[in-house]
Design a protein around this nucleic acid. Structure first.
Lengths: 117, 117
DNA sequence: ACATCATATGCCTATATGGAAATATGTCAA
DNA sequence: TTGACATATTTCCATATAGGCATATGATGT
């Protein structure tokens, strides 16, 4: 079996750095394809192809405006990534380390003085 | 040019669902390869290969214990993902939607009544 | 109808993949 | 040393890429 298609899910779609750049460029608001071509410095066909992938995983929406096609972010499509990676946040976030300390402290106290039920 | 190697960065490494499963399984603490084989239901060689990829992007660390190799998470390697996707959080988090409303409201007011400089 | 601008699609190629199966490496125990 | 267990590596293969380039589609103005 080969690698999963880039359109399988948003994880695969954003594994490509150029596609992340495109999403970053769209963070400022709607943009036409040509705008994006300038923004990411790729040839137009490549940008269109990346946009297709992003469309298929719902990461972007399109709107026709005359001869141009305006692309915009569809943020919620990225939520699964955030949800997944947030589960590991405590492993690097300092504030959570400190929270851990507090919790351990509480636990120690509770076990220490026997004023329980 | 082909697709970027899975070991290029953590985004690519984690695009493979089986590797995410492995990381999930490691969230509970250190595990041997055989443990992981059971946990994810893949053949041992595949698991070893996935673990190699995860090692190369620093998402896991290994420790030798007798004939077993104990793998553990190295959370901070996932931070770039969290950092990137968090930039888009406002696009789906309800509380931010409401913040947007408030801001727009303020803006309207400011533009509406001419009490400027 | 025509020329022009804007975007999408098709074709080509080198390349890395993930699973399967076989095998190599490494460690312990007797 | 030999055997059993634990893990890693190699080989094989079908498949999907990403970029380059040519071209098709679509909308606009004259």
């Amino acid at each position: 079996m080969a690698r999963a298609a880039t359109t399988t899910d948003v994880f695969n779609a954003v594994a490509e750095p150029r596609r992340r750049e495109i999403l970053d460029a769209l963070a400022g608001g709607e943009r036409s394809v040509n705008d994006l071509v300038e923004a990411v410095g790729l040839a137009q066909p490549q940008v269109s192809k990346h946009l297709r992938v992003l469309r298929e995983v719902q990461a972007v929406d399109v709107r026709d405006e005359g001869r141009r096609r305006m692309y915009r972010l569809n943020g919620p499509a990225l939520e699964p990534i955030h949800a997944w990676v947030s589960g590991f946040e405590r492993l690097w976030a300092e504030r959570f380390d400190r929270l851990d300390l507090v919790l351990e402290d509480l636990k120690r106290k509770e076990e220490g003085d026997g004023h329980g039920t």
